[in-house]
C-alpha cells in the first residue's frame, strides 16, 4: 500500500480513459497526494469489523415475474450516436 506506486498509464487503460502525456503527469502528482492522505486508514485496527457495502442493507428484493411496460425500442435508441436497422452500430469486433 505504498502511496506512490500507482502506474497511471496502466490504470487509465483499465478504466478505458485516454490521457495525454501532460494529463498523465498531473494525474500522477494529484493521485500520489490523495493516496498519501488515504494512508491514514492504516492507523485503525479493523480486525473483526464487518465491511459495510450499504448503509441500509436490503437483500433479495424481488417482484412478481410478470411483464411490465418498459421503454419502447425507438425511445431506447433515440440517443444512439450511430445506428441502423434498429441496432447500435459499433466497430468491427470479429475478423
Amino acid at each position: 500500500m505504498a502511496a506512490t506506486d500507482i502506474d497511471v498509464k496502466y490504470v487509465a487503460h483499465l478504466a478505458r480513459i485516454g490521457l495525454t502525456p501532460d494529463e498523465e503527469v498531473k494525474m500522477s502528482a494529484h493521485l500520489a497526494g490523495i493516496l498519501g492522505y488515504i494512508e491514514k486508514l492504516k492507523e485503525l485496527d479493523v480486525t473483526g469489523v464487518e465491511p459495510t457495502a450499504h448503509a441500509v442493507p436490503m437483500v433479495n428484493v424481488l417482484r412478481p415475474d410478470v411483464v411490465r411496460p418498459s421503454l419502447a425500442h425507438e425511445a431506447a435508441m433515440s440517443n444512439a450516436p450511430a445506428k441502423a436497422n434498429g441496432l447500435f452500430l459499433v466497430p468491427k469486433i470479429v475478423e
Binding site: 486508514l41 469489523v49 465491511p51 459495510t52
Partner: peptide
C-alpha cells in the same frame, strides 16, 4: 483500500 474502507465505514456508521 476498498475492503478496509468498507470496514471503517462500519465504524463510522
Amino acid at each position: 483500500y476498498y475492503l478496509r474502507a468498507q470496514k471503517v465505514r462500519t465504524l463510522i456508521r
